[in-house]
Every structure is written in C-alpha cells, then in structure tokens.
C-alpha cells in the first residue's frame, strides 16, 4: 500500500474522528458537571437535526436562521430536560440516573419517529460534493467543514472554562458540596451543562445529518461518541479531541486493511475493540481525572 493512499486514509480518518469528538463533547460537558454519561445524547442530536429540517422545510426559514433558532430551542430544551427529569434524581444511585437518560433516549426516538416518520431526509447544507485535492490527497469537503466547526467549538469551550462561569462549573464537577458551601448554585450549573450539551447536539446533528442523512440511525452515533468519550477520559475536552482523532484514524486505516481480509464490516469491530480495551486497560481513559493522592 503506497504512502499517499495511507495518508489519505489517515487524514480523512482524522477529519471524521473530529466529528466523533464533536459528538463526544456533548457527553463530556454533562459528565463533567454531573458524573453521568448521557445516553440520550444521540437522540438529542437527531432531534436537533429534525428541528432544523422542520424549521427550514415546513416553516420556510432560511437554513442559517433555522440552525440559529434550533440552537436557541435546544439550549432551552436542555435546561428543561435537566429541570424536569434529572434534578429530582439528585442523590439517587447513579444507575437510576443512567436509566433515566436511557428512558429519555427511547422517548425522543419514539417521538421523532411518530412525528417525522422513518424515511431519510437530506440536510442540504449546500456544500459541494466535488472532491477537494490537497496535493495527492483527496478530501471530503463536508468533513473538512465539519472538522472546522468542531475545532471552533472546542476552542470556544476551552476558553469558556477559563471564565468565571466556567471556573464555577469546574468547581461543581470537583466537589458539589463544597460548591454549595461557597454559594455556587449547583442546580443552575448542571442545567447549564445540559443546555450547552444540547447546543453541541445541534452542531453535530447538522453536520452528521448532512453526511449520512437525517433519520433514526443518527441517534446511533451515541455508540461511537461514547467510545471516544470513554477513551478520552469522559471528563476531558482535550481527551475527547485526541481520542476522536485516534479512533477516526485507526478505524479508517485499520478497516481498509482488515476489510480485504474479513470481507467488510470491520469498522464496528475496531470501535468495539477500542472500547473494550480502554475499559479493561485504562478505565480512566487517556486524560481522565484521577483522584489526586498526596503522599
């Protein structure tokens, strides 16, 4: 296999990987504030894509306005979900909270199926599908645009966590009782993280909707997103970025080797292997937070 082909696989894998990271960012934001992996993140992403389509096709909004409006709608939807479904769960066993997010996932998938049906719709962002050549390497324009959006969001969130509001959110994820003791509203902080994760769901819903069409399968991004988040350490934004790139590259390069041997379908096997080995060998992920032990 020649080096140009290999680097093409790697670069495109990395771009796709950044889109996994974008999805995983939503998981990380919620995990950071409330220590629960949000199993409804895939459904939220799909819901966001459907809302964009509904606003632009059914109500005739221009696409940019539909996306902006969806961002606002989803932000408040995120706040609402936290307030209605999760706040009352505070202090319950983590598995119950996990089941609550699973229930939300099933609920959102069921409702979108009932309202919009099962046929796949296209997002039609207007990004050309003509190949883009970077030297000898062939790139996908939509993946490149998506990776750009992902990087912009990462930078925005990294900066946000240096602001006073951001520091307070990090304090909550460190110790919520201590946060209460100095007057931080833990409830508002957790709600804010749900709102932000829902905004991330809009970005990833629009981009993934463009790539693979808007239908129920969009919610299955959760599996790759969770793999990336776990590998990155669940509460680390930088970890999610690097883990996404890693998974994207390994998946793309690995499957092009393996598919010729096993005859296709090795992508999912690679993802599964990464998840299983992470949990077995490095449960804190690459950049997950250990409890600090002083000697």
């Amino acid at each position: 296999m020649d080096i140009a082909y290999l680097s093409e696989l790697a670069v495109n894998g990395a771009l796709t990987g950044l889109l996994y990271s974008l999805f995983a960012l939503g998981l990380v934001l919620i995990y950071k504030s409330s220590s629960v992996p949000n199993l409804a993140q895939g459904a939220l992403t799909m819901l966001a894509a459907y809302v964009v389509l509904a606003l632009s096709r059914q109500l005739g909004f221009p696409l940019w306005l539909a996306i902006a409006a969806t961002t606002i709608i989803m932000f408040f939807a995120g706040l609402g979900v936290e307030k209605v479904a999760l706040r009352r769960m505070a202090g319950r066993p983590i598995v119950m909270i996990l089941m609550m997010t699973l229930g939300l996932d099933i609920f959102i998938r069921g409702s979108t199926l009932a309202v919009w049906g099962g046929t796949s719709r296209s997002m039609e962002l207007g990004i050309s599908y003509d190949p883009l050549f970077l030297g000898p390497i062939l790139l996908s324009r939509i993946n490149l645009a998506g990776a750009g959006v992902a990087i912009a969001l990462f930078v925005a969130f990294l900066l946000f966590f240096r602001t006073r509001h951001g520091i307070r959110l990090r304090a909550i994820s460190d110790d919520y009782i201590a946060s209460w003791s100095i007057g931080i509203s833990v409830e508002h902080g957790v709600a804010l993280s749900w709102g932000m994760a829902s905004v991330v769901a809009v970005a990833s819903g629009v981009i993934w909707g463009e790539i693979q069409g808007v239908d129920q399968s969009l919610s299955q991004l959760l599996l790759k997103g969770l793999t990336v988040a776990v590998l990155g350490g669940l509460d680390s934004i930088a970890g999610a970025i690097l883990a996404g790139i890693f998974l994207g590259v390994v998946e793309n390069v690995g499957s092009s080797y393996l598919d010729s041997i096993v005859g296709g379908g090795s992508r999912d096997l690679i993802v599964a292997a990464v998840l299983i080995f992470t949990v077995m060998l490095r449960p804190h992920g690459l950049f997950g937070r250990h409890d600090i032990e002083r000697v």
């Binding site: 006073r164 520091i167 460190d174 009782i177 003791s181 007057g183």
Partner: peptide, 28 residues
C-alpha cells in the same frame, strides 16, 4: 444564605483539587 453573609468552611477542607488556588478563590 451565602448571599446573606453566612459562610461555612466544611470539615475536611474540601478544596477544589483540580483547580489552582487562584481559581478556588475566583469560584467563590
């Protein structure tokens, strides 16, 4: 109650371990 002016330094210190002292102060 913190807004009223009551502040409770809880037992066992409980600083925000993954924040710097500067950020600990800023959070409060």
């Amino acid at each position: 109650r913190v807004e009223l002016g009551i502040c409770h330094v809880i037992e066992g210190r409980r600083v925000f371990e993954h924040l710097t002292p500067d950020e600990n102060l800023e959070a409060a």
